[in-house]
Design a protein around this nucleic acid. Structure first.
Lengths: 193, 193
DNA sequence: ATATTTCCCTAACAAATGTTAGGTAGCACC
DNA sequence: GGTGCTACCTAACATTTGTTAGGGAAATAT
């Protein structure tokens, strides 16, 4: 019963694009309807409310990050390898779902309670995955020791911002960008001799 | 003739706070007026339009980043020292003007033309300051070579995100956070032996 | 053939939006 | 004592907002 009709998928897709490009508040229900070639009220055959759409998009995007990144953190390999892979894959998730990711990263603030709290909780959960691997690396004496939250947030910030300039048809593939990011963040800008 | 009345300063200040906390579009003129203890229409004695407020805040914030960071880039010291200082000072500007910086970083998208273009131009200008110092470091064979835009954006993203979690009364001062960031970004997470 | 479901419509709603018009009370200055 | 300025007011405006009510046509299922 959790199947989503084809038309509803189109609605969600279009919403992702518009929310991502213009922002959630700057996108009216009428804008969205027009982009779909229907009247505003017709949207309500597919969706309970505008905020429901925002929630759907944000929640799915969150789920995708968990689905792809968590398994890596649980592997039994070196923390350096794991963190590298996590950075690469996180970058890929952004690149492959660029609009949804933008909504996930920027528009979640417009959720109202209790979903807002639920969402921020998930975000913290996700950050913890990174913290844990970083802690492992520190305990192996491989990573420098900063506050774990600080390290995790710094890394995630650097990756997340790619959503503002990543071009699907640019020179670099998402994986290449991810690999560059991983190298940059793990080794720093300064060369070691 | 460029003096700003005391009351107008209060208006701008309050707008900074509200735009930063709730977002530009989510803050109505009536919200702002209420926070100032006046009626919505009274705001227009001080300000031409709501968007004018946004512009004022964003433009001033931009000016402050230029004013504080550009001189460092022009110093005649080692690129490593310069970049470190630029990271520290950029972090301080955010911390010292946390609301204005948040508006500068997140809400500028709601400017309309021609100011939108003017603003994005300034942003690119600012990024170039970082690019130049990074290029210097690469040419001195001190920094690793990535695309200069990539390096600049990665560094700036990591710093800029601090605006979401920086607490004026937290454990770390802005300068300490900046120094940590500089060390992290220049040396990487991995220890060198 | 009938019933149900899917998908969309027109029309309307109350509320909120940014902004303008026009006015008033208090103050400073000549 | 009049002039002008500052800082606010009430009232109203045209639009836009998200959403609901109620219905209709076409496809699908029974």
């Amino acid at each position: 019963m959790n199947t989503v009709s084809e038309r509803k998928k189109q609605v969600i897709n279009t919403a992702e694009q518009l929310f991502s490009q213009r922002g959630y508040l700057a996108t009216s229900v009428r804008d969205l309807a027009q982009a779909l070639g229907m009247e505003a009220s017709s949207l309500y055959s597919h969706v309970k409310s505008k905020e429901d759409l925002l929630w759907t998009i944000a929640d799915r995007s969150a789920a995708e990050f968990f689905r792809r990144v968590r398994p890596i953190a649980q592997e039994n390999t070196q923390s350096k390898e794991k963190l590298t892979q996590m950075i690469v894959v996180h970058t890929s998730v952004i690149a492959e779902n660029i609009d949804a990711a933008a909504v996930f990263l920027r528009e979640w603030k417009h959720l109202s309670e209790p979903r807002l709290s639920e969402f921020t909780l998930k975000r913290t959960e996700y950050e913890k995955i990174f913290r844990k691997v970083i802690r492992e690396g520190v305990e192996e004496n491989l990573f420098r020791h900063y506050d774990y939250g600080f390290s995790a947030r710094t890394i995630l910030s650097a990756i997340n911002w790619t959503h503002t300039w990543y071009l699907p048809d640019g020179e670099l593939t998402a994986t290449q960008i991810g690999e560059n990011l991983a190298e940059f963040l793990l080794n720093g800008l300064i060369r070691n001799f």
